[in-house]
Amino acid sequence: MKKRQDRVDEMSQSTVQQKISGTPIGERRWHMNKNRREAFWGYVFVSPWIIGLALLTGGPLIASFILSLTDFNLVNPEAVRFVGIDNYVNLASDPLVRQGLLVTFKFAIIAIPVTMGASLGVALLVNSQRLFGRNIFRTLFYMPIQIPLVASTLVWIGFLNTKTGWLNAIIGMFGLQGPDWINSEAWIYPALTLIGLWGIGNFMLISLAGLQAVPTNLYEAARIDGAGAWVMFRRITIPLMSPILLYNLVICLITTFQYFTVAYVLTNGRGDPNNATLFINLDLFHEAFRDNRMGYAAAIGWLLFVIVLILTVALLGFARKRVYYAGGES
């Protein structure tokens, strides 16, 4: 009802404006009101992105779905056959796909909370009025993200080396023997998480922006009411940051399910040790470019897409009741 009333009001307003301008209504039927005009120009300005998405992402999406229904082989393309849903059926019984998903979920359970916590923690640190040289620290924490992932991973390989790596040397100073970070099935996930922490600069920056958008008068009021730092953090900072945290969480989830480069470089692309780093994307890559089974790889891609979509929708659904939007729910 309200929307209909809005439209009536808008029409009345338009009519009034037209009467004022002296232009007959029938002659200016194409004329847009302000909201529509804004929307129109909005669409015009985002149209390059929409067209790009449709052509450069939508096209390959459709192509990959069609490929997933075939046995398309990269080095024998002329023999392609339509196989229906065979590839999807085979996914269910493929132990490497199961291993890939298991590895990815295991890593997500460890890495996402650590990444989210660390990025928020660092954002709080570099937002603190008490921190000397805040801008320097902000730069330092953001800087690692500028380094190409392959290069930084090669550095980490040296850092984590059991025999001559710095990390185990530091652990050794306390009389302890460091683990074999890269070659142990148990320690590889902490190692990957550690490497991941080096790249939290983006999340930190977004969280920092969110922190700075929290009105200071809320803190002042709370302080007057006797609230301590923890209460203010829990009752003010977190609720007001919740849209930012949700955004970070969704992006973190998606990027975790896209995890590939570090695992590839760290283990020469093999998923060592004992398939402990065979992330689902690495398995997809093996199928597509090592084993040339592009049709099957496309089916894995679609499986991954559906999983990420379900998790994202679930997350957004959960967030409806947990995230505070200052402007009201949109």
């Binding site: 999406l61 998606i254 896209q258 480069t261 890559f285 897409f305 957004l316």
Partner: peptide, 24 residues
């Protein structure tokens, strides 16, 4: 949500699987 996933997957902050590391 679909568009979010599609676009995030297409322009992720992490390198995509089609850019494998160099062989050493």
């Amino acid at each position: 949500a679909t568009v979010l996933v599609v676009t995030a997957c297409a322009s992720s902050v992490t390198p995509s699987p089609t850019s494998p590391a160099p062989s050493t």
